[in-house]
Nucleic acid binder design. Structure first.
Lengths: 347, 347
DNA sequence: ACAGATTTTGGAAACGTTTCCAAATTGGCG
DNA sequence: CGCCAATTTGGAAACGTTTCCAAAATCTGT
């Protein structure tokens, strides 16, 4: 059986329904100014033929593509995957498709991925810029002619809206919390220090230490397990070893847990630990790990909603360009020396 | 400055170069039968105008869309996210875009998501069928007229290729391993028993138990933490409590770890544990958790490669329709009573 | 029942490519 | 130089929509 697939076209639908092609088109697009009878005829013709609009033709004609693009560093990463899922849900609610492309935080890939995305002429764009200072990207956004919203990281000079989380303030509060516990030599363990979010967190850490009159202690040599392990060992053997560690990333946190277990260093009695970004087993580990919990889904959802608002409602009435900043939560567990406390809402 | 974005068209290029539009087109597409001089003129015109072909117009004319669709139950789930990333990499290597839609293992969503995908006329399709017996989906695939590859789960009666992992055999081997340790009352803790992969795993478990002349003990009441907790408590209090647990899903495994920790039941001395599907902290937990490790990226990558092979190379020379079955690895850690075997790469 | 206002309808034009085919140009060779 | 073959070129048609505009049909109020 050779059921080739010469997709039925709108004129075939029109012919079968006994109406003009323009009329058929109107029925397909919501049917304004179409009489009930005609509507019915056309709809049943569509049903019978299994007609589906040809997307390419629509795009060519210049209409909406019902497509929004999402550009993220990675899609296997839980953080971005959750954002993507949340954004996808919003897109689907607006009868649109979210198309995703991944950069790997490399600006080169960024532009080329963007190009592949743009081929599909998305109605709008959701971005996580690798580098907030990327002028090429900012220029691209300005000239793109479509609404763009960035999230997790801003894009300076692009004039587009952003949805961020307060990395600075959350890191500051977290550090202050450690300080309140009496820890004085707090090591800040960093990987990927070039990323905006990480830089903000480091800034928050430094600010807190400075406020307390303590000496900041930042180590950027935590790119992977091996390096982190080496760094940690050196610090622990130094003349004035740290009494607490503040890790700025999910994977660093679990790496440190693993390393400390190997070294048989008890948490928090010998070394306290607080991590940025929650992870599934943080509550299950022994001891449970205190973390800053990010509003992950909120970021994706809010960004998408903002995009569709600009897209549908108010193309001219541009809302204020101030970034929307979402709060993080400090979830206190055992690893910072706290008694297991119910998660606090106050940042 | 209203820098609208009237993308330059091919005729503008042609005009600037002083040639016909057909000639310009030939230059853009590899330039066969074009004299060297003309070539040069057109290319510099392209350069000057920053011309980029309009993808929609090309597609409309009947070419490839350079797009493949991926339909998965979820994209926030680490398993599918990794598959997606691997498939995306392959797609990008073929200068194509992977477009993703999510079902939530619900057949209704499945067809509607598929419809949204099909709007974009993908050149091929990558599917994770919610239900291998879904006749509607199978019919759709047969009539779609484009190559389709399923992975993780088959789709019976669809005639398309599949890439699977050997859930049955892996579960059997895993159960056998527990049996070799001397465990006799092995509880198989199940959630989402309607899923194909889960059913296969249960089947493998039963087979192993039967081979050993032991009584299978399957509990499907593990849908969430609360239920799992209740189930587990009941079994532990029964007259002949289990001495080992085999969990069939990632989240069940960590749920059980958490529950046993709360109940202060030592692993593996009082209750051994072996899980299906590895997770990041499985090696870090105390004790470390033995698991079946799935070839996650392989699944996505292989499926995508298969799809592009059908797409590009051999549209008629259909390869054998036998599913490709990838092997799982049994990663032995402490929770099943094993000594920590070289904590790294033991098959 | 009729003029005018309103709603509904049909069909042509346009979107930017590619793909033809015929026309124009070039080259070879007697 | 002249003629045929081979190469190169220009431009029309087609892809399937949407969006016009004018024509047709229907509705209003008197």
């Amino acid at each position: 059986m050779r059921k080739r697939n010469p997709q039925p076209t709108l004129s075939e639908v029109a012919r079968l329904a006994g109406v003009g092609v323009g009329t058929a088109s109107r029925v397909v697009n919501g049917g304004v100014n179409v009489s009930a009878g005609t509507m019915r005829k056309v709809k049943s013709a569509i049903q019978e033929l299994g007609y589906m609009p040809n997307h390419a033709a629509r795009v060519l004609k210049g209409g909406r593509t019902k497509t929004v693009g999402l550009l993220v560093p990675s899609i296997a990463d839980h953080f971005f995957a959750s954002c993507a899922e949340a954004a996808d849900k919003v897109a689907r609610a607006h009868d649109s498709l979210l198309i995703v492309a991944v950069t790997r935080n490399q600006c080169g890939d960024e532009m080329s991925s963007l190009e592949v995305l743009m081929r599909h002429r998305p109605d709008g764009l959701l971005l996580v810029p690798s580098d907030p200072e990327n002028r090429e990207l900012a220029r691209f956004v300005r000239n793109s002619g479509i609404p763009v919203v960035t999230f997790d990281r801003p894009l300076f000079g692009s004039g587009c809206s952003s949805v961020l989380s307060d990395n600075f303030e959350a890191a500051r509060k977290a550090t202050l919390h450690l300080i309140e516990h009496g820890y004085k030599r707090i090591l800040c363990l960093v990987s990927e220090p070039e990323l905006y979010t990480i830089r903000e967190r480091v800034r928050g850490y430094r600010q807190a230490m400075e406020e307390a009159g303590l000496q900041p202690l930042v180590d950027t040599g935590a790119e992977d397990m091996a390096l982190a392990s080496r760094s940690l060992a050196i610090h622990l053997k130094s003349r004035r070893p740290p009494d607490a560690v503040f890790t700025l990333k999910n994977s660093s946190t679990s790496a440190v847990v693993q390393i400390l277990r190997q070294l048989r260093i008890p948490i928090p009695s010998r070394l306290a630990l607080l991590g940025f970004d929650d992870f599934e087993l943080a509550a299950t580990l022994h001891p449970s790990i205190s973390v800053v919990q990010q509003p992950i889904e909120d970021l994706g959802r809010t960004a998408a909603e903002l995009l569709f608002a600009e897209l549908e409602g108010h193309p001219s009435k541009r809302m204020k360009r101030e970034p929307i900043v979402l709060a993080n939560r400090l979830v206190l567990r055992r690893s910072c020396g706290c008694k297991e406390v119910p998660a606090r809402k106050d940042l």
